[in-house]
Design a protein around this nucleic acid. Structure first.
Length: 328
DNA sequence: ATCCAGGTTGCCA
DNA sequence: TGGCAACATGGA
């Protein structure tokens, strides 16, 4: 069964390839992945999404409608015009913002997001994708997606699709595995942390759902208690799974941008000071600012920008703004 | 081959 | 507090 969903001001590819989520696979002009336990094929055509769902591994009760679920996951309710208007007007921000038009901060399942970002430390995005896939194939459940989608050319009425995808393993499933099994998924030293955190979640020592009621500072502290979760990962999980749009994760890419564009290579700028600056300067939607700067820097910035050709061949040239991030 | 990656942690002064 | 090394793995 396929649905059409209105999705104005949305760029599916930029959203899924910007390093906030790691499991979506580009296939046949669309993407195959899961939204929670629901396997989904999504294809964007102009301002519309064509969505086809597969079978969940188990019958799920109280599931919302597919269009509602998709719209919620991709945060189609976020008002991008308002968010864009509220961001700073400096050249670096404007350039990133122009390039990242339609990129949305999505709403990921909490455990899935937490687990993958625990695996993300000192890993390139490509590696994180490999780890995510390995965990799914080893411990997740396989689902199939089959159906019909109308063809782009409109010559034939439709084409049939048939894909396979794995759900992300639950905390319980990870907790039941061994550190050696996790290491076989190329987790390295992160295996110990993922296992320990999975056990805490499984035992009920932490309740990821009820933590959504905490204020930002308390949520950050609670997440920080988990093994393998420091300031950066906590901010990623807050931003990508708890709808805390102020959260501003600072990784090596963002740190380069901040030092080059906002601190003009000044020395003695501690992580603490960087954090204070981003909090006050980018404000309420800092997470969006961060994601736009991150994606832009990764596509065009110095230190051999990653994937500019493969991921976005149509936009190889950065927007003309009289500013370059080269030489960071 | 060498460098580096969406960091965290423990230990040192 | 701030600096620093260890920690695993594989893409560029």
């Amino acid at each position: 069964m396929t649905f059409d969903i209105k999705a104005p001001d949305f760029d599916l590819e930029k959203t899924l390839n910007s390093g906030q989520v790691f499991h979506w696979e580009k296939i046949d002009n669309g993407f195959v992945g899961t939204i929670g336990e629901v396997p989904v094929f999504v294809e964007q055509r102009g301002g519309e999404l064509k969505v086809c769902r597969g079978e969940t591994p188990r019958p799920a009760g109280g599931t919302p409608t597919l269009p509602g679920m998709v719209a919620h996951y991709f945060a189609l309710d976020h008002s991008l015009p308002e968010i864009r208007a509220a961001l700073p007007k400096d050249p670096a921000m404007q350039a990133a913002l122009t390039f990242c038009r339609g990129l949305r901060i999505i709403r990921q399942p909490k455990w899935e997001c937490l687990a993958t970002f625990i695996c993300s430390s000192m890993k390139q995005v490509a590696h994180i994708r490999q780890i995510s896939r390995a965990l799914r194939e080893r411990f997740g459940e396989e689902c199939t997606i089959s159906g019909v989608v109308r063809r782009l050319d409109g010559v034939s009425p439709h084409r049939s699709i048939n894909y396979s995808v794995f759900t992300f393993p639950s905390a319980e499933r990870i907790a039941r595995s061994s550190e050696a099994q996790l290491r076989s998924c190329a987790l390295g030293y992160r295996a110990k942390n993922l296992l320990a955190t999975a056990r805490l979640v499984t035992r009920g020592d932490v309740d990821l759902e009820s933590m959504s009621r905490l204020a930002d500072v308390d949520l950050r502290a609670a997440l920080g208690e988990l093994p393998g979760v420091g300031a950066k990962v906590a901010n990623c999980v807050m931003l990508f799974a708890y709808e805390r749009l102020r959260a501003f994760p600072i990784d090596v890419w963002i740190e380069r941008v901040l030092r080059e564009q906002y601190f003009r290579r000044k020395r003695n700028v501690t992580p603490q000071r960087l954090s204070e600056f981003t909090e006050s300067y980018f404000g309420e939607h800092g997470g969006y600012a961060q994601q736009y700067l991150f994606h832009y820097a990764r596509m065009f910035g110095g230190r051999r920008a990653v994937g500019a050709r493969k991921q976005d061949a149509t936009a190889r040239v950065p927007p003309a703004c009289g500013l370059s991030l080269r030489g960071l």
